[in-house]
Design a protein around this nucleic acid. Structure first.
Length: 168
DNA sequence: AGAGTGATTCTA
DNA sequence: AGAATCACTCTG
């Protein structure tokens, strides 16, 4: 997969972050080492996955919202048979987890180790432009956090969830 | 626009 | 304990 859309969550400083009210059993991996995967279950049926980013204790993370399928399409379609197109396979945080079969068992795994899921640099050139916009699904109680444009996506990628963020 | 679904967290 | 909330997706 090539990651094409993410959202940033700034730990205890960010009212929209799971970590805002401090460490709990659920968000414990956010407070741990960077490079690990934080997986949570929501709305009674969906998993979403984040890459922990900041130094241990800061609970900063990036939510994986969209990815382009570059290999293993057969397996992915089997994991998510309702997808109408390859672009739709991972266009959305819960779709991405379903397609990649990410679940509870993957919470806390080290993405820099040679495991089932790995995070690698594909060597692609830095994009000339990046789309940005407000994060999705924030409730009124997150207040001023909605003003920050911490949702980012690559232009010209179909596997970006809707609504697409705008160019800067 | 609304339903579905259940873990987690807040309030008392 | 009970209630509210929820970083979503699909259907109509």
């Amino acid at each position: 997969m090539r990651i094409v859309e993410v959202e940033a969550y700034r730990g205890v400083l960010d009212p929209a972050s799971h970590a805002y009210r401090g460490r709990t059993a659920r968000n414990a991996t956010m407070f741990g080492e960077p490079g690990h995967l934080y997986v949570y279950f929501t709305y009674g049926m969906h998993f979403c996955a984040n890459v922990v980013c900041g130094p241990s204790g800061t609970a900063e993370a990036v939510l994986l919202r969209g990815a382009r399928a570059v290999a293993g399409i057969e397996e992915m379609r089997a994991a998510r048979p309702t997808a109408r197109s390859d672009d739709e396979l991972c266009a959305g945080p819960a779709r991405l987890c379903q397609t990649l079969a990410i679940g509870r068992a993957h919470n806390g795994v080290d993405l820099l180790e040679h495991g089932e899921i790995r995070l690698v640099d594909d060597g692609a050139a830095k994009p000339a432009t990046v789309l940005s916009g407000p994060r999705i699904g924030l409730s009124p109680r997150t207040g001023e956090a909605r003003a920050f444009r911490w949702r980012f996506a690559l232009p010209d990628e179909a596997a970006v969830s809707r609504p697409r963020p705008a160019p800067n």
